[in-house]
Design a protein around this nucleic acid. Structure first.
Length: 318
DNA sequence: AAGACGAAAGTGGTTGA
DNA sequence: TCAACAACTTTCGTCTT
């Protein structure tokens, strides 16, 4: 385990990748929306997604001169659920220097060695603490691999703690629990990722993620709505290089399909995939079933079945 | 030749007796 | 606990563009 060093890292927090205001290349509107919750950057006017999986970096405040910077900067790292002791414990630096930067005498060095040793034992004392450390780092790793916002990773860490407090870890892999809580948190925040995507950044399979997710969802009494197909549209569309008009059409189709009761009991991903296929075809931006299948993670067969059902119900001839 | 189509058999999960 | 069931996948042969 590495020692956690606290530093006030305020010097290069202002390297934001997106200088605002940005103009929408599609409709020229200036109403660009930074949705850090969904990790997306899109046009509020026409819906064009310009970036997804943007990383929320830097402080939440803005400063216009150095005086404000000094005023607004707060000392120390924020208390965080993604660090096992919430970032609040003290660590003893590994450098053999005192507070004045002078090297500590060789006699004292042995003393400090013992101090460090005990310090670590106190911080990461028992096995549950140690597994928590591992789980939280895994959540953070997977979260950033999927481009999820800080708040979602924090939420997942909190959920993991709740699971740990209830003793739900026993007999289950840490990796599985970590992946499952991350999946659950994404859904809570309305930015669903598919099981495939989670399994892709995890060391365990889709099956196990699903199983563990159902388990913790039941045990912790999470009441999660089924994934809404609409939440998946922007991400899939932008991966397919489809712009706002196709997204809007897709959402329209999904809405009508819902009304006509063709979507009951069907998997949301298949519905989205088929709706995108129809919308893109109608608007002359045709994508092959295979392209859509690759992005969405369902098979071409499923796309075909859904799109036939939807097209029939909505009287759409292609 | 690539894409779309559809039949058939298999998988994993839910439900209800 | 087990069988029926729906959704989805895999595979493969055929048709269409």
């Amino acid at each position: 385990m590495e020692e956690v060093e606290h530093s006030t890292n305020n010097n290069n927090n202002n390297n934001c990748r997106y200088d605002e205001p940005v103009e929408c290349p599609e409709c020229g509107s200036h109403s660009i929306v930074h949705d850090y919750e969904k990790g997306e950057l899109y046009c509020g006017s026409c819906g064009l997604v310009m970036e997804e999986e943007i990383v929320d970096q830097g402080p939440e405040w803005r400063a216009f001169d150095s005086e404000q910077t000094m005023k607004r900067a707060r000392t120390g790292a924020p208390a965080s659920y993604t660090i096992h002791d919430k970032g609040l414990s003290t660590t003893i630096d590994w450098r053999n220097k005192d507070t004045y930067g002078k090297t500590i005498s060789s006699g004292d060095q042995a003393k400090f060695y013992r101090l460090r040793k005990w310090q670590k034992r106190i911080n990461v004392s028992d096995s549950s603490e140690r597994s928590l450390v591992f789980a939280l780092s895994e959540i953070d790793r997977m979260g950033s691999a999927l481009g999820l916002s800080r708040s979602i990773r924090e939420g997942a860490a909190l959920l993991y703690r709740q699971a740990a407090d209830k003793g739900l870890i026993r007999g289950r892999s840490i990796e599985g629990l970590s992946t499952a809580v991350l999946y659950a948190t994404c859904r809570q925040y309305g930015v669903p990722r598919t099981l495939d995507e989670l399994a892709g950044v995890s060391r365990i399979g889709k099956k196990e993620v699903g199983r563990t997710y159902r388990f913790i969802s039941r045990e912790l009494g999470l009441k999660l709505q089924p994934v809404s197909p609409v939440d998946l549209v922007p991400r899939f569309c932008s991966k397919l290089d489809l712009t706002g008009d196709v997204q809007a059409k897709t959402i329209e189709i999904l809405g009508e399909a819902e009304e006509k009761d063709v979507s009951v009991g069907k998997g949301p991903v298949g519905l989205v995939a088929a709706s995108i296929y129809i919308a893109a075809t109608l608007l002359g931006r045709r994508r092959t079933q295979k392209e859509i299948a690759d992005v969405t993670g369902v098979t071409e067969v499923t796309i075909r079945n859904r799109y036939k059902e939807i097209a029939e119900a909505l009287d759409i001839g292609i």
